[in-house]
Every structure is written in C-alpha cells, then in structure tokens.
Design a protein around this nucleic acid. Sequence first.
DNA 1: TCCCAAGATTAACGGAGATTTAAGTCGAGC
DNA 2: GCTCGACTTAAATCTCCGTTAATCTTGGGA
Lengths: 233, 233
Amino acid sequence: MGIRILVVEDDELIGGTLVRGLREEGFTVEHATDGESAWQLLQAGSWDLVVLDWWLPSQDGLSVLRRFRERDHETPVLFLTARDSVTDRVRGLNEGADDYLGKPFAFDELLARVHALLRRREGRSGTIVSAADVSVDLATQKAERAGVPLDLKAKEYALLVYLLRNPDEVLSKTRIYEHVWDERYDGLSNTLEVHIFELRRKLEAHGDRLIHTLRGRGYLLGNPPGGVKGNGS
Amino acid sequence: MGIRILVVEDDELIGGTLVRGLREEGFTVEHATDGESAWQLLQAGSWDLVVLDWWLPSQDGLSVLRRFRERDHETPVLFLTARDSVTDRVRGLNEGADDYLGKPFAFDELLARVHALLRRREGRSGTIVSAADVSVDLATQKAERAGVPLDLKAKEYALLVYLLRNPDEVLSKTRIYEHVWDERYDGLSNTLEVHIFELRRKLEAHGDRLIHTLRGRGYLLGNPPGGVKGNGS
DNA sequence: TCCCAAGATTAACGGAGATTTAAGTCGAGC
DNA sequence: GCTCGACTTAAATCTCCGTTAATCTTGGGA
C-alpha cells in the first residue's frame, strides 16, 4: 500500500519480525529469503525502499546490491550487516547502500532509519506528503485536511498516500490497484471504487472535491482537469 | 487510441489486465491469445507497438516474432518472458525484440517500457506529441493549447493524438475512423463529425482554426491547405 | 442564382461505467 | 470460540460519454 518495501532476509525470525513490524506501520512489504527471488522481485516491482541482508544463502547480498545498482540508482537500500564490522559496512556503502545497521538491532532503530531514508527521498518535505490542503505524516500515520484530522481505515490511508504522491496526475485503476492492493487488477471487483467513495466522503466533509473521476481513464487527486471550465465574460 | 498496441498473451488474467490498463492509458488495444490469430492481426493492421508473450499455445512467440520481422523491422516489440532467463531474453533480442520484461511484472513497469519504446520511435520528443501550439503528453495524458490545459473526453483525446501524429496531412474520414475507433467506416454514421466538432470547439477556445475540412477528402490538422486559397492565374 | 450534397450543429437517448447502499466474509483481539 | 470491525462482494441506482438522428449551413457546380 502506498509505500512499498522489499525485505531480503533469510533468517526466519528476523525476517518475520521485520515484515510484520513494517506492515503494522502501514507499509506494503514483500519478503524474499534468498538472492535469486530477491533479484526477481527487485526487477519486477517498483520499490520505495529495500532492506537487504548481508548474508544470503545462494548469493550474498552485496552482489545483489551491485547488480541492482546497475539499473537503479534511486531507490534507497538499507543494509543489514551481521555485526558492526567496519570493513563490511564500508563495502556496502561503496556498492551503493544508503545506510547500514548492525545486528542485533532494535526494531525501533530500524524504523527510524527507514523513515530517515524515505524522508531523504521525499525531498525535504520530511515524512509529510501533501497536496492542496490535505497532508499525511508517514511517520505518525496521521492524515488531515485543512487542519482537521481524518479518521481513516488502513486501506483508505494507503489509497490516500498513493494519490497524494502523484498529485494532478491521471492514475488508472490498474495502476492504483496494483500499488495499493499489491495484486493484479482483474476489473471484476469494485473494491477500489468503494474505497474511493469512502475516502471522498471523509475528505469532502472538510472541503470540496479533490478526487476527480476521469471516466474510463481513472482518478486524479488535485485540481480539476482542464483548468478553469466556464470562464466569465 | 491514436496509438495502436497489439497484446499477444494467452494468460487470461495477465492479458486482461494489460488490455484494460493500456486502454485506460488512452491506447487502442487489440488482444490475441494464440500465435495464429496474432499473426493474422499483425498482418492485417498497422501497429505502433506489440507486446508479445513468450509462451503461446499453438506456436511460440519467438517464431511469431521471427516471421513478423521478415516483413517489418520498424514496429517495436516488447517481449514477455516467463522468467528472468538470460538465454530467453537474449534469444528474444536476437530475433528482433526491442525490449523484454520478466514475469511477474508490475503494470507500472510495463507502462514505463511501453512509453520508452514509443518515445524512441516518436523521435526525440519524449512522450510529447505536438504541432503548432498544441501538445499532448502521452504519459500523463495531458493536452494543452498555448499553455492552457484542455479538458478532453477519451475519444476526443484519441482523435487529437491521431491528428497530431499526422500533422499537415490530409486524413480521410475512413483512415481516421479506422485508427481511432478501430472499426470499419461505413459512412452512415456521423460520429466522427460530432467529435471533430467538439474537439474544434475546445481547441478554438484558445486560438484560431487548426482542424481544416477538405470537402470530400477528409480533415487536416495544421496550416491551412494550399497556402493562399483563391490565387489567380 | 438555385440546387444539392457534404459537413456542421444541436438535442436526445441508451448503455457502460461509476456511485451508493447493504449484506457477507474474514481475521484480529478478547 | 465469540465478537467486533475492516474489507470485500453484490446489487440497485445514477451519471455522463458516445452515438444517433434530425435540422441547419456551407460550398461547388449547373
């Protein structure tokens, strides 16, 4: 939903904790337990952040990172090193990792670094994503419109975040569905429409329409398409 | 629309998603589920891009590609390989595919590659198609004239894109209709004229006439035809 | 100048797609 | 294992886009 994180970690306990914990924080999380599947997932999807373990069974994390960086220099990578080895972390950073964390670590600490990396990428705006008079704080998961806090369900929140991150752009249902639900969109279900409805209801309690329908094309959050409609005169 | 894409994919879910998603993005999309019908469609129509699955029931995608490339070296082909097999993708590229994508893939990623391939072919200009003071960004589906955004319906958008891609050229109603509507033009319906009218209305709100009528021959977007009209001698 | 065909314009209709409401399902937490 | 709430499914209703159709306008030829 909204923000997609790939966790590459073979240790069952640590991996499970990471996935669960990050999901509770409202992220969409996928989990790979070896280098090969990690590589496939990296190529397949667009990720906002990658948490990558140093030691992996079939292929070490470093070479995954190196291959990944040949194509993608943007997506932040948080590197997990087995211990706080200076040489390891230097090598990781040299290969394009953005930050590292030595095991064992507290989940809190990892979360702080995740937010820091995402913040850096959001460009100045802190953990806050906003458009028009709506804003969401990704760290605290609080959404508000015109200063009034919104009480959103998890899916509504995820949907809003995705729309906010692509303001004034036509987003097809296919794209929205794949991002927010992390599934293929078969066009048979109207789940997306129902959530749009709920989100609109809550947003429009404190302002006018923000989510516009482009019939047959998708939805758009922001200014109504086509600028000013009925000009005066 | 305006831009025609052939999707060759036997998997119902993936194919359905591709067709629906690409249509939402404003393309005219046809769908073939086996090599034989794919071959027929390839020969029948003129396509701007082909998305071709590796595995097909009656005949594998590679041989379809090979046969197609004997006649057509221009049309970009995006190849879908079942997995990220290096040998598969090398073979595909050797046979004349322009790009590949390993399943599973996110729709977003496919869309990005589609735009990249079209861009390469559109000639430098990015995803932007323009003529005179009108331009359309195929990626964001935003159209504008003299900097003023236009609020176009799906069909109007498709029509405009087709006209923009063939500026200063007389386009018969038959050609326009078959490209934009993807149907035979029987000359009985005046749908095309109605859409031309609507499109003109929106375009001419911010400038003078751009779509000219060539009585009995069709329409032309661009400079008035023949320069000076009633020149003597 | 008159006539006719091609095209322009306007209004109305039908249906696909979108909205809305309500009932069903599933999982988390007690 | 029960209950509550979030999410999904289903179904009714509505809305708007694209088409049709009917009328008006224009241009070219006799």
